[in-house]
Design a binder for these strands. Structure first.
Lengths: 220, 220
DNA sequence: ACAAAAGTGTTGCCAATACACCCATGA
DNA sequence: TCATGGGTGTATTGGCAACACTTTTGT
């Protein structure tokens, strides 16, 4: 038995203190004019991982971003024209990096736009379900992955980091406990730099030290 | 673009103190005479979850077992005849329940057999990779899932439970700490029964209280 | 001087670890 | 009586949660 085969992408970012998801407005049936996850058909002979890269590139202009597989969604009724199996992937991009790069290249979608995770429109197909599943996984893995750091610019303040945690978890955290936990973890590099252009006390800037993080994971 | 679509099952069990995986010996090309995960094509119009149940049934005689999705494997070269996308699922069955039910129904495989996880033969396709990925997930989730209890008979001793943990994790655990942890968790029901037929002090039997377990998870 | 956010310590509790001996039973 | 696994307690440690005030800076 054969099935059509697509990829759908859950692309997260962080802006205005909120976790955002990139959606596209469809310009073709079915679900014309609906918002949906960026997604395409995989081409014949194309490796799934290559298809993922291609689609990510076509929607964001980004390259060399690792996307993690969420799983397959294969409901017979998820597409009105019969089964179309989709494998969902997710990733996180820095908002600054993609701000001016979001450009729909294909004609089947009209525009791409960021939506706050708690203000999603109604979505085509089973894409709402895909997002919810992805979000749960993101929350569950927040302490074992580099996800939060992908949300932030290279140099960031501790308050920004805390806001990113809070955006993912959907709840507020205690400032002192958060800072203790982070500084104990030992994979932030403290810079000799502070914020600029703020009208209050400037905060110290930090960098994520991926090396040390990887090492700590290696202990098992 | 279309692709063939199969399901592969990683079925775990526990016997002779070891974690076991059920494999089938193929009787058709490609990979004739090789060992492989039990797997079939999904039928047209068949829901993926139904296909999973069907395949599990055909190989083990078991019904109403929940299988968890591991993910999609879609390498263009994973099958010599071109891309065959497979979605891998995994589950755990009680060895006693299936001991006499393992019966290949289809003719494309010659026999089904349990293999200890650390004594696997060479496997067809990318099945070794699928198993390794599944095993990592099993280890990671051992404390948040009912997996270990699926390995054991309904009534079991604490030592048996500890052995199941050790089989999954691949390492030994401290007896007292293990018992403390388990009895603190509060989802074991102590029975007024002990082991029979052993030539040493008979151990108390316990049951897993799924209700309480679910409740504890609900706290988040 | 004021507004706004940065930054900082202590305490109590709980969970996880390390570790060694006596007990009950059947052969 | 012996072999075998069953069963038990304590002390230490490290991480997590609760909680409020002072400092710095720009306007």
């Amino acid at each position: 038995m054969q099935t059509h085969f697509t990829i759908d992408c859950v692309i997260y970012s962080f802006n205005e203190g909120k976790l955002q998801v990139l959606l596209t407005e469809r310009n073709e049936y079915p679900y014309k004019d609906w918002w949906a996850l960026p997604g395409f058909f995989v081409e014949k002979g194309e490796e799934m991982e290559d298809a993922v890269k291609r689609i990510l590139y076509e929607h964001t202009g980004l390259k060399d971003i690792f996307m993690e597989q969420l799983g397959a969604f294969a409901g017979v009724k998820r597409h009105p024209q019969g089964r179309i199996l989709t494998v969902a992937f997710s990733t996180i991009v820095k908002y600054e990096d993609v701000k001016f790069k979001i450009k729909p290249i294909t004609s089947y979608m009209r525009q791409a736009k960021w939506f706050a995770i708690d203000e999603l429109p109604e979505l085509a197909f089973d894409h709402h379900q895909i997002i919810q599943q992805s979000l749960r996984k993101l929350k569950d893995s927040i302490n074992y992955s580099t996800a939060v750091y992908e949300l932030l610019p290279e140099k960031f303040t501790l308050t920004q980091l805390q806001q990113a945690y809070e955006a993912i978890l959907g709840k507020t955290l205690d400032k002192r406990n958060f800072r203790k936990k982070i500084s104990n973890s030992g994979f932030l590099k403290e810079l000799q730099e502070v914020q600029k252009g703020v009208s209050y006390r400037a905060a110290r800037l930090y960098k994520f030290d991926k090396r040390k993080f990887q090492k700590q994971l290696g202990i098992e």
